[in-house]
Amino acid sequence: MSEEQVKRMHDGKGFIAALDQSGGSTPKALKNYGIDEERYQSEEEMFDMIHQMRTRIIASPSFTSEHILAAILFEMTMDRKIHGKYTADYLIEKGILPILKVDKGLAAEVDGVRLMKPINGLDALLERAKERHIFGTKMRSVISSYNEKGIHEIVKQQFAYGIQIAKAGFVPILEPEVDIHSQEKGKIESFLKAEIDRYLADLDDGIRIMFKLTIPDEAGLYDSIASDTHVVRVVALSGGYSREEANEKLAQNHHMIASFSRALTEGLTDSQTDDEFNEMLRESIQAIYDASMA
Results as ranks from 00 to 15, higher is better:
residue 289 Y to R: 11
residue 76 M to T: 15
residue 194 A to W: 03
residue 174 L to F: 00
residue 187 K to S: 07
residue 293 M to K: 12
residue 36 D to R: 11
residue 52 Q to M: 15
residue 1 M to I: 13
residue 118 P to W: 13
residue 76 M to I: 14
residue 19 L to I: 05
residue 205 D to E: 11
residue 212 K to H: 07
residue 215 I to Y: 02
residue 154 I to N: 06
residue 72 I to C: 13
residue 44 E to V: 15
residue 134 I to D: 00
residue 161 Y to W: 01
residue 255 H to G: 00
residue 64 T to R: 13
residue 287 A to L: 10
residue 117 K to V: 02
residue 28 K to C: 02
residue 38 E to F: 10
residue 250 L to M: 08
residue 185 K to P: 02
residue 158 Q to T: 00
residue 17 A to N: 04
residue 261 S to R: 10
residue 165 I to A: 09
residue 2 S to I: 03
residue 87 T to A: 12
residue 43 E to D: 05
residue 251 A to H: 06
residue 151 I to L: 08
residue 248 E to K: 15
residue 30 L to A: 02
residue 143 I to W: 07
residue 170 F to T: 03
residue 144 S to E: 09
residue 150 G to Q: 13
residue 293 M to E: 15
residue 264 L to R: 03
residue 168 A to P: 01
residue 229 T to F: 12
residue 10 H to E: 15
residue 103 D to L: 00
residue 123 D to N: 07
residue 40 Y to M: 06
residue 175 E to Y: 03
residue 167 K to W: 00
residue 288 I to S: 09
residue 36 D to H: 11
residue 49 M to L: 15
residue 143 I to A: 12
residue 80 R to V: 09
residue 280 M to C: 14
residue 155 V to P: 07
residue 103 D to H: 00
residue 151 I to Q: 06
residue 171 V to Q: 07
residue 137 T to D: 03
residue 127 E to P: 14
residue 131 E to F: 05
residue 22 S to Y: 01
residue 206 G to Q: 13
residue 71 A to D: 10
residue 287 A to R: 07
residue 265 T to N: 05
residue 50 I to Q: 04
residue 96 I to K: 10
residue 200 L to K: 10
residue 101 K to T: 09
residue 58 I to H: 06
residue 259 S to H: 03
residue 64 T to Q: 09
residue 52 Q to S: 14
residue 291 A to W: 07
residue 16 I to M: 04
residue 221 L to R: 04
residue 48 D to W: 05
residue 98 P to Y: 11
residue 53 M to I: 04
residue 246 A to R: 07
residue 267 G to D: 04
residue 172 P to T: 07
residue 232 V to M: 04
residue 160 A to S: 14
residue 227 S to V: 05
residue 47 F to G: 13
residue 76 M to K: 15
residue 236 A to N: 02
residue 7 K to E: 14
residue 209 I to S: 10
residue 174 L to R: 01
residue 134 I to E: 00
residue 39 R to G: 00
residue 138 K to D: 07
residue 263 A to V: 08
residue 256 M to A: 08
residue 155 V to H: 01
residue 141 S to D: 00
